[in-house]
Design a binder for these strands. Structure first.
Lengths: 201, 201
DNA sequence: TTAAATACCATACATTTGTATGGTTGTCAA
DNA sequence: TTGACAACCATACAAATGTATGGTATTTAA
């Protein structure tokens, strides 16, 4: 990983920015156009950047450039806004946006992000946090899950007690929700919390 | 956002996978090759996918495809392994890898991820967490920062007390570190913690 | 039953793109 | 002072790529 000249650094930065903005790398001519130079000159710079280990390239492939070291595998997941009340659908069409996460933060078939509102899971999960949720139809006892109760989405810990299901927040201020046997059908298990993101300050 | 036929879904999925794997979208012929069909047929499918709102395209631009809706802006940041002892450099060349984060999780000039080892900041930050750090030379009083003390990197909360600087973990088991005036030069302020990721279970 | 959409084939062509060549000028360390 | 590197010009060409055309066959909704 050799040192770069100022010009080479400029060009590498441009390729990075282009990649982030468009989702694919620039062609030689696009780089040339941006710097007001010729494609052959860009080719010279690319050669240097490849030799110094900052870029990789697939020969004869259009836009076949990739940064080195390559970013770790990523995962694009939908992010949903805080769903306190209303019609909590949690279907991809109604996502707030889609964000990229490191793949190791989002393992599983179907994963999504959920903005948290409310303190019922404090201090484990706070209002303003974003939880990473793996969609699944069962949640192990004691784990934090996302549930649909009375057409509302809530974050709770699941426990079983005789024939009843208990949904308990970690915050002792909130009283646990008891769902009796005959009402189990009304309980919707959406998924399990597999990670927490908390912004600080 | 219309419904897709099974074939169209297959092709959209392939484009997604290709994009994640290579960092750029496939050409018509690459899609055609994968499905054993002709480029013209792929063009037909792309037309349908664009009409139904799942893809965008730049005319006459090679690999000018992008997913719709586009993922939120992202940021590629280096991730460093747990630095309990040893030679804690925290320079990009020694990063464990680079990961993509949502841009709104990584605001600031220079941001990086750090794996946490040790319980001195419990229960705020636990061993196994990954903290998002903004590199800066000052840390506001009471904020969590990353510091270099005696050639070791630690996570602590910073306080001032007369002429001394106090580095305090949230975990009361650990005794605060007092750095006296004459030793201030030995204290390295690396950055401020701006976010926490915690894997669950 | 008629039009629209789906899902292909086979061929063709213009544009974009990667790449090579040979040249000039300047810097900088051996 | 000689050779390696940097940074560019100007031109050229083959390969990759996007795109269009006119087909065929089947399914689907009006």
């Amino acid at each position: 990983m050799n040192l770069l000249t100022p010009r080479q650094q400029e060009i590498l930065d441009y390729i990075r920015d282009f990649q982030d903005r468009y989702g694919y790398p620039p062609s030689r001519r696009e780089v040339a156009g941006h710097f007001g130079i010729y494609p052959g000159s860009v080719q010279d710079h690319l050669k240097a950047l490849i030799r110094k280990g900052h870029l990789k390239r697939e020969p004869n492939r259009s836009r076949g450039l990739s940064l080195n070291p390559a970013p770790a595998p990523l995962r694009i997941v939908p992010r949903y806004g805080a769903v306190a009340a209303g019609r909590p659908r949690l279907v991809p069409e109604e996502a707030e946006d889609r964000v990229t996460l490191p793949a190791d933060w989002a393992r599983g078939e179907e994963v999504f992000l959920l903005r948290v509102q409310g303190e019922s899971m404090a201090p484990t999960i706070l209002s303003g946090d974003q939880v990473i949720v793996r969609r699944q139809e069962q949640v192990p006892e004691g784990a934090v899950g996302v549930f649909r109760v009375d057409n509302e989405v809530t974050l709770k810990r699941l426990y079983k007690e005789a024939d009843n299901i208990l949904l308990k927040g970690d915050n002792p201020v909130f009283t646990p929700l008891v769902i009796e046997r005959q009402d189990h059908a009304g309980l919707g298990i959406i998924g399990q919390v597999i990670g927490i993101y908390r912004p600080v300050i």
